[in-house]
Each structure stands twice: as structure tokens, then as C-alpha cells.
């Protein structure tokens, strides 16, 4: 059985609504991507240099990352030589196999959040400006609350105008408490307060917001290091997750973001936001491939419930849906 058939079977067992949402959210991504590949394969009679060049462009247009694409194309060329493939039709399976290989990397990593069965779980959100950290926290709070957890928010973005108020609005919407200090105060102090409050009130999950910062700002990265250190000191083993929030429209710079934030805060997962646009967020392939950071959550819209746990199978299915259908019809 082909990989995609297996994939599809696996997915049909999962809740239809979620799969639907993924499909809807990724509609633009999937259409443009697989349509382009279909078109490419239909147009060529022979697998030649030009064919590869166009394939390269399709992958690059999905922001997959130049280095990763080059690697992939080289491997594909070798494969084609080895199997002596000339008919473009045969390229379907080769391309999809290689893509999935890259996506999954060596080992399967858990994509579920590391929520402690007992006691307080602390999740720290980091990222550059404007990626959607605060919104993601609001959505995750809603999701966790619906799962029966008690949740608290820490307003650690004391810098940007209106950031604390933004988190407070989310707190009200979801119905969870927000721990804050005044604008301009030390974010590490806010975290300290929040942890004490969360402990005192027997909270299950504390979601910590931080100010957006560009990864090349040394001082701001040091501040983030301190925030993390304070959390570590107050609760052994915390933060249980450090989630890097990435905007799906971001290009190659996402790699630099992932690298630097990982160095400073030991990022454990990625939240890929704004995937409901036309951007593909293909850079997560490269990040997974090079830095081994898994995507854990994806933002698929603006509503409170538009945050989903990342499911690699669904994502791959979303990307390659027309491949699957094609393989079936053949």
C-alpha cells in the first residue's frame, strides 16, 4: 500500500471536523502547491534539467527554504538516475516520498503539549514582533479550559503599547485570570508574581506571554533568558514548554529566528500562525529538518477555536491531498 493510502486511512479514523478545518485552512496552500506539481508533470514529456528547475521553483515558492530545496532536488536527481526514470508520471511517488521523508526526519516526535498530569504546567511563549503570541495564548487558554483545565495568563509583554490590555481582553473572553503589572515593569517580576499566584490558586496551566523581540537584539534576548531563569528557579522542570510562535508568511528569516530563540530559551515546539492566508509556512520543513523542532500547534483562523494541535499526517494530507486522490484513481 502506498504511503498516502495509509495516511488517508489513518486520517479517516480521526474526527472529521478537525480534518475539515485543516483542509479549509490549507486550501490555498494545497491548491497552489499540488496544482503546480500536477501542471508541471502534465507539461513535461521527459524528466530533464528544466523539469527539475521548475520543481525547484515550486518548492521555493512555498518558502521551503533554499538549502532544503537544493538538498531535496539533488536527492531526487540521484533517485531518478538510480531508477532510470524518464516518464514524469512516475515522479509523483518519488517526490512525495522524499518530501515526507524530510518532513518527518529521523524519529517521530511527540506533537502533543507536555502538560503535567499533576501540579502546575508552565508554558512560555516567545517570538518576534507581530507573529501572534498574545492571540495564540488566548486561543490556547480557551482550548485548555474547554478540556477542563484551570488556566492563568501572565502578561509578560510589558513593552508594547496596549499588550497588557490585549491579554486582559482575552482573559475576559475566555474567563481566566490574568496576572499583570504596570506597563514598563520587569517581565521577570511579572512571571514571579504569576507563578506564586498560580501555585496559591492550584492552577493547572500557566501561559506566559512575552514581548515580541527580533532575534538579533542582544539585550532583549538576554531579558528573555532572565525570564526563563526566574521560571526555572521557581519551579523545577519548568517551563515545561517553550513555544516559538512563527508567522506562516515569514520567509527564510524564520530559520534564523528558530536558531537564535532555541539557543537562548531552548524552544521545545513551534506554533505556526496565520496559516489560513495564502502563505505556506514551508519553512517549518527546513526547521524540522535542520533544527529538529517540531510544530505543535497551528493557527488556522481568527476565531477563538481556530487553534489546532498540529498533526503531521493531516498537514501532509492537506498539502498533498490531490496526490492521494491521484494515486487512488490510478
Amino acid at each position: 500500500m502506498s504511503f498516502f493510502k495509509k495516511l488517508k486511512e489513518k486520517i479517516t479514523k480521526q474526527a472529521d471536523t478537525v480534518t475539515e478545518k485543516f483542509k479549509r485552512g490549507l486550501e490555498k496552500t494545497r491548491n497552489s502547491f499540488s496544482e503546480k506539481v500536477n501542471d508541471l508533470i502534465a507539461r513535461y514529456r521527459k524528466v530533464d534539467e528544466e523539469f527539475f528547475e521548475e520543481l525547484e521553483e515550486i518548492l521555493i515558492s512555498a518558502d521551503v527554504g533554499v538549502a532544503t530545496v537544493m538538498e531535496l532536488i539533488d536527492e531526487l536527481k540521484m533517485e531518478v538516475k538510480r531508477r532510470n526514470i524518464q516518464d514524469p508520471q512516475q515522479m509523483y511517488s518519488v517526490i512525495s516520498e522524499k518530501l515526507v521523508d524530510i518532513y518527518r526526519g529521523g524519529d517521530e516526535q511527540p506533537t502533543a503539549l507536555n502538560i503535567q498530569p499533576n501540579g502546575l504546567t508552565v508554558i512560555l511563549f516567545v517570538g518576534v514582533n507581530g507573529v501572534g503570541k498574545t492571540t495564540t495564548i488566548g486561543k490556547l487558554a480557551y482550548k485548555l479550559k474547554n478540556e477542563g483545565k484551570t488556566v492563568m495568563l501572565a502578561a509578560g509583554d510589558t513593552f508594547r503599547a496596549g499588550a497588557i490590555e490585549q491579554l486582559e481582553v482575552w482573559g475576559e473572553r475566555v474567563g481566566v485570570e490574568v496576572i499583570k503589572q504596570s506597563a514598563g515593569s520587569d517581565p521577570a517580576a511579572v512571571m514571579y508574581d504569576a507563578i506564586q499566584a498560580a501555585k496559591a490558586r492550584n492552577i493547572d496551566v500557566l501561559l506566559c506571554d512575552t514581548a515580541g523581540r527580533l532575534q538579533n537584539k542582544v539585550n532583549l534576548m538576554k531579558e528573555l533568558e532572565k525570564v526563563k531563569r526566574v521560571i526555572e528557579r521557581e519551579i523545577p522542570g519548568a517551563p515545561h514548554e517553550v513555544l516559538l510562535v512563527l508567522d506562516a508568511t515569514t520567509g527564510q528569516n524564520a530559520m534564523s529566528q528558530a536558531k537564535t530563540f532555541k539557543e537562548v530559551t531552548n524552544v521545545t515546539g513551534i506554533v505556526l500562525t496565520k496559516l489560513d492566508g495564502t502563505a505556506k509556512g514551508g519553512i517549518v520543513l527546513a526547521i524540522r529538518n535542520e533544527l529538529n523542532i517540531p510544530v505543535k500547534l497551528v493557527g488556522l483562523g481568527e476565531k477563538m477555536d481556530d487553534l489546532e494541535e498540529f498533526n503531521p499526517e493531516q498537514y501532509v494530507y492537506g498539502l498533498f491531498a490531490s496526490f492521494v486522490e491521484r494515486e487512488e484513481s490510478m
Partner: peptide
């Protein structure tokens, strides 16, 4: 426009 935008900048 965010200067970090990738290939999608054109569509936007």
C-alpha cells in the same frame, strides 16, 4: 509589510 515576509509577499 513585514520585511521578513517570504515568497507570499507578492500575493499579498
Amino acid at each position: 509589510v513585514d520585511a521578513m515576509t517570504g515568497q507570499d509577499a507578492v500575493n499579498v
